[in-house]
Write a protein that binds this DNA or RNA. Sequence first.
DNA 1: AAAGTTTTATTGTTTAACTATTTGGCGTGG
DNA 2: CCACGCCAAATAGTTAAACAATAAAACTTT
Lengths: 262, 262
Amino acid sequence: MTETASKTAKQGKPKNPKAASRIANLLRRQIITGELRPGEKLLPERVLQEQFEVSRPTLREAMRLLEAESLIKISRGQHGGARVQKLDISVTARQVGMYLQMEGTTLADVLQARAFLEPPAARLIAENRSLAVLDELKGNIVAAKKAYEDSNPVALAEAQTHFSEVLTSQARNQTLSLFAKLLHDIVHMQMVDLTVKTHSREGVKKMQWLSIRGREKLIELLEAGEADEAERFWRNHLEASTKVVLSSYRAQMPIDVLQETE
Amino acid sequence: MTETASKTAKQGKPKNPKAASRIANLLRRQIITGELRPGEKLLPERVLQEQFEVSRPTLREAMRLLEAESLIKISRGQHGGARVQKLDISVTARQVGMYLQMEGTTLADVLQARAFLEPPAARLIAENRSLAVLDELKGNIVAAKKAYEDSNPVALAEAQTHFSEVLTSQARNQTLSLFAKLLHDIVHMQMVDLTVKTHSREGVKKMQWLSIRGREKLIELLEAGEADEAERFWRNHLEASTKVVLSSYRAQMPIDVLQETE
DNA sequence: AAAGTTTTATTGTTTAACTATTTGGCGTGG
DNA sequence: CCACGCCAAATAGTTAAACAATAAAACTTT
């Protein structure tokens, strides 16, 4: 046996590397293909153990993996167990953010990326302009103005990111929309300790007003269907305001997505 | 004791949700902050057990999490153990792809998103044109032409994606560059069973040639520093060729990122 | 010296128990 | 009858100790 060993005899069951990830793959597939839908309960541990013919610790490693991906949520108690969940985007955002963090990416870089996505989106909206979208954008401006007058920086920031989301989501491209959401989430993570500083700054008020005016102008262009002009205007606007943000806040610091995950 | 139970007495140790994810968080932080660098070996399980005061199955759940994130790679044997690794982008790509898959995103959608990112990148290259980048792009064209003449569709596809990568990576924005890589990875996963069909098709050859010509033309514009023109041209080119791809292949099917992972 | 064998350090997996946390039901006292 | 508290049952969370598998190094034999 010792001589023939090595790799001559292939095992009947290739038996993927680790039992846990093998099982996680199987369950993951069931969930993602919709075989198991959000809200549905997975079988309890001991049943799955028998089904997959593994021990409890091994099965539980698999459950941890799925739980970490936010595919399932596990609870204890009488009617506890693993329930399929809608995917939580913040989990993906964290992983993308982790990647960026390891490369020393700055918040400035992330903001710039966002500024990169929006102008083409604006173009698309101008090309096939829909009343619903335009109305939503207008409503957003109203809310932003109110927040501005109330000197409520948090609400104003919310309104701004919402505006961005509407822009990118209406580009009618799911992939791009997801990217926009990821960026929003990553930026949001950083803002936890960033927004606070907004209060005391001089000139912020003025910048905020310019920002609102810029969006109003964009809406006009969108309504007029001026695709080229809308795209160009919005790029210039974002570049200008990004510059201000970069110099104002400590956006040149690498992001950190690990702050007290909880 | 029964009466005072409930939640009156807070434990000294708040003891975050699950031991495994708590430990994973600690180790993850060490890795991401660079305290532990790629190649370095983590302490063996039994030492970490003592350090974190948990049992082996619990610790191993944590290790599984980090392994799934590609932060560590575990091997058995005498000098085995967990080693810190450079992050594997395909893990992140898979997770992003999972998200897209659950929304029923089509390959067409993903390709369109890529077409969305490149024109602005082309603009940037035209604005601050560097010889190195232009040379790399030119070299790419040469390779593509060779693949074309050899009727080597795989090499040609490689060249095309490389061209895209150079474009987006030279945008000097890490976030955007990461997105481009993610898209490339997701597309690549799908191409496993997609490229094969390329051979038999009529008109493909012609399309390939147009694609190469388009890139040559783009390079000319970039060299001339015609930012606006380069961006516009490239968008039109991508839109046109995307349309062809969409009708030719089964790009209208939802993507599937779960096909036989390993 | 080369080849094969044994030893050893490490992770992979199993089994069996105990602990903690919910929920529902049951009973007792108002 | 209702409300409160206690208990029981179902479930996941954690621990413990052992054994299996693997890979490298050390040793032994030819």
